[in-house]
Design a protein around this nucleic acid. Structure first.
Lengths: 132, 132
DNA sequence: TTATAAATGTTATATTATTACATAACGTTA
DNA sequence: TAACGTTATGTAATAATATAACATTTATAA
């Protein structure tokens, strides 16, 4: 796992922001938030995001075009991701369930395809929103 | 399951195009292809896509921003979708595996969240691309 | 120290998707 | 069949998301 001090300047600024936010952030919201730190252009944000995704520090929530800090301390590289997404408050959390990840990592069918990565997104209502 | 004859004019044009293509199609590629049929604006395409997704005739491949016809003849409404995506040729197919869908539909953890929908995308190399 | 890769800065532009508003077609039921 | 509500359509403008292209700088390592 890559250490945080190996992150470049922009990567660190952007990772810290996402991490501190505690939830998913969108690219242009990130951009807005880091402009005071000298990051002015979308591309600077997207490049850092790409790298952070590549090394597994963050994940992209595909259905939301948003990025969240990896909440799984033992995360190597993001080849196996699962999230739960509340359709009401849009809260997102990373699911780390060994049985689930084993089941999916070992999944194979008769398509002849070799799977080396997956992303799973569950949708529903979180505890709070359910009780409203 | 909604019958095809219940589709409106634009919905039918767009569904037929996606269905005949046999693979995932992107919204603006759809737009380009249906302009000769009088559908001129992005919104007309997105509105039809939204409806088709809602009734389960097509699914959105979130990681690709693309839409594919439901290949699962017994599909009611798309609350449980799984796809395999070749990262080389971008071929996409819908996985219909009863064990997998049962496993995921019944999945629950201690988050207190009630899951009523999921989307799973597997990535890898298809048979053809593997042997290249 | 030189050369190679990785990261940055900047401008422009491509791609994906929605807002807002006006009109038409369809289905129900009184 | 008239009136009503709902669904679908048409059109223009614009918002939101993401990448291309090119120049320069910084870090790594041979």
């Amino acid at each position: 796992m890559q250490k945080e001090q190996n992150l470049s300047k922009n990567q660190k600024i952007i990772f810290d922001l996402i991490d501190k936010s505690g939830g998913p952030m969108k690219a242009y919201s990130i951009l807005f938030n880091v402009q005071k730190k000298g990051i002015k252009a979308p591309l600077q944000v997207y490049r850092a995001l790409d790298k952070l995704v590549e090394i597994g520090k963050i994940h992209k929530i595909e259905s939301r075009n948003a990025f969240i800090a990896c909440q799984n301390s033992s995360c190597q590289v993001s080849k196996a991701t699962a999230f739960s997404i509340c359709e009401s408050c849009e809260n997102v959390s990373e699911i780390s369930n060994l049985k689930l990840s084993k089941y999916l990592s070992n999944f194979s069918d008769n398509s002849g395809m070799k799977y080396n990565k997956y992303n799973l997104e569950f949708f529903g209502l979180c505890k709070k929103c359910k009780s409203k």
